[in-house]
Design a binder for these strands. Structure first.
Lengths: 336, 336
DNA sequence: CTGAAAGCGCTAACAT
DNA sequence: ATGTTAGCGCTTTCAG
């Protein structure tokens, strides 16, 4: 059993002091002679610095905690992959936590994260309690909300322009000639869902129409599917804006295969996110694109700046997303 | 700024020694009096033990490195979620690495993991170089391959019964009356893909049929879709077994919407994995279920046992998966 | 530029 | 059961 090789072993073999070894591996200045000798010895012995010891003394772990709620919504695995790449490129690693639960659940998880001395936290689509937010602030550990707004605009957060996105959908549906328009919203407890819903209602009114009905889809497939059925049967809607693609796929399936309706001929469906699947022919879903690449970049940038101690940073970052028109809605009438 | 609270501060306030505090938080024995005093002081000061310091001295980080390649294949986000739950329940956390790359890429990533003193590594669907495998062994860090076999059966690995799964599909397709059967395999460089392909070919022969053609789908949607088109046009196949659901969805879409064919009337499609989407009406895919819950449990169990120093453990664990018959193939003819 | 020495916050003998 | 002591492997003053 290869006992663990320490910087002391390397120092002995290279004929230098242990601190010289440390300098070489932490990029501090050293003469070429020293560097060469240390490198040779390290390679020979298979030495690699122990980052745990390093973290203990520097107080930084180079680890980012990522809390994420829904991995069954394809938007998040996609974002996770981008986060991993982006952060790895900056020398950070991701400690991951799934938190599909209550606030207290999430708090426990984040407390764990804190114990691990993470340098920063990304909360993807989950809310943190005020107590926890305070604690992070007390420990000077930055938290950035990803795809999750907060009522408190001073909390660092990155979202797409949800209100504007909702408006875009409204304007388009009205222009396309739909008359009885409903909305299956994202969970009303989430700012993101609220904003989309409010933007949609606002856009409808501004376009001279109005919302026939609105139901909370809770970000759940079954809830959304049942809501869609009700909307069609009870309100005879001809278009439904669904709060995200994840639910929209369920609605599409239910309408087509359970109810035998045609989309878009009987009912038009619009989603939100433009996850890769939305472009698949089986769905061909009209949706608002959330540019996850840019959202992730903004989040990472913001988080690292905060870690570096940046003070004057606009905490709220909204990224615009365009409406992608596909076959789940009828095409816009040609301009005269 | 709340300076960091250490066990020393707690000790001072509780009127006990620092080691008493340590004992209380690491679960060693202590009198009720001490425990109470320490708890009170800790709560008051907001103390939490620093796990980095603990790791440094115990030599265990309670962190598991998870290396994963394809998050766009829904099987993996699902597994990730299960891993997270399972491991969290055991007091472990997941340091995640995305490695969609070459071997050298993966090696760099795992070297990184090793630097972080992870207690164990789960390699989901990626191969590690021999050099790295050796290094892990040298450092006594267990590695378990998840959904990824290896030519070396002494490497701990958890897979479904891929060969048997391929056989099941073959037997079923022949019994259902298909005559011209082809296979779009998973990447031939992966043991998993190979085993399914070999089992399929074997099953076909045993059922008195044979493989008309086989193409490597590389686990890529586009490759699989193009292969399917070729198979239909050049070989006039009436059934295709696709190496996993991820590719099968692409094939289904391409056949139906690009080529205007009917599945299953013109061509039958079978996948492998039974990811949640396979059950959606839009796909309704016949497939072999990989019981990801049980696979994850087996992997975690094996990994933790290895970490605890367990020696006599069967390294290879295969979990049986049943064939789920849905609408992408015609139903079996009734037994006479 | 380099070595010696002092810790980072904690656990683990070892005494008491 | 509890306090004392000695580190875990490294970074970081501080002299030289």
């Amino acid at each position: 059993m290869n006992r663990k090789v320490t910087s002391l072993d390397v120092a002995a073999r290279a004929g230098v002091s242990q601190s010289a070894v440390s300098r070489v591996f932490s990029g501090a200045s050293a003469s070429q002679r020293t560097v060469d000798a240390v490198r040779e010895a390290a390679d020979h012995l298979g030495y690699r610095p122990n980052v745990v010891a390093r973290s203990l003394i520097t107080g930084r772990s180079k680890i980012i905690g990522l809390v994420v709620a829904y991995l069954d919504n394809a938007f998040y695995p996609d974002a996770l992959e981008r986060f991993s790449n982006e952060l790895q490129a900056q020398g950070y690693h991701i400690l991951i936590f799934m938190a599909h639960g209550t606030t207290s659940d999430i708090d426990r998880v984040v407390a764990d994260l804190l114990d691990h001395q993470v340098d920063g936290i990304i909360a993807a689509s989950v809310g943190l309690s005020d107590a926890l937010t305070d604690r992070c602030r007390g420990l000077n550990i930055p938290v950035v909300l990803f795809n999750r707004g907060d009522a408190d605009p001073s909390l660092p957060q990155v979202t797409s322009a949800n209100f504007a996105g909702g408006q875009k959908v409204a304007k388009y549906l009205v222009q396309a000639g739909y008359q009885r328009i409903a909305h299956i919203s994202g969970w009303s407890g989430s700012k993101t869902g609220q904003d989309r819903a409010e933007g949609f209602a606002d856009g409808l009114v501004k376009a001279g129409s109005q919302l026939i009905a609105q139901v909370d889809g809770m970000y759940k497939r079954e809830v959304a599917a049942a809501a869609a059925q009700d909307l069609v049967q009870t309100y005879a809607v001809d278009a439904i804006f669904v709060g995200n693609d994840h639910m929209a796929f369920a609605v599409l399936d239910h309408l087509r295969f359970e109810m035998g309706l045609s989309v878009p001929d009987d009912v038009a469906i619009v989603g939100y996110d433009d996850v890769p699947m939305a472009a698949w022919s089986a769905f061909d879903l009209t949706t608002v694109r959330q540019p996850s690449g840019r959202m992730v970049q903004a989040t990472v940038y913001m988080l690292l700046a905060l870690i570096e101690g940046e003070e004057n940073l606009a905490p709220k970052h909204e990224i615009d997303g365009e409406l992608i028109i596909r076959g789940s809605t009828r095409a816009l009438e040609q301009e005269a």
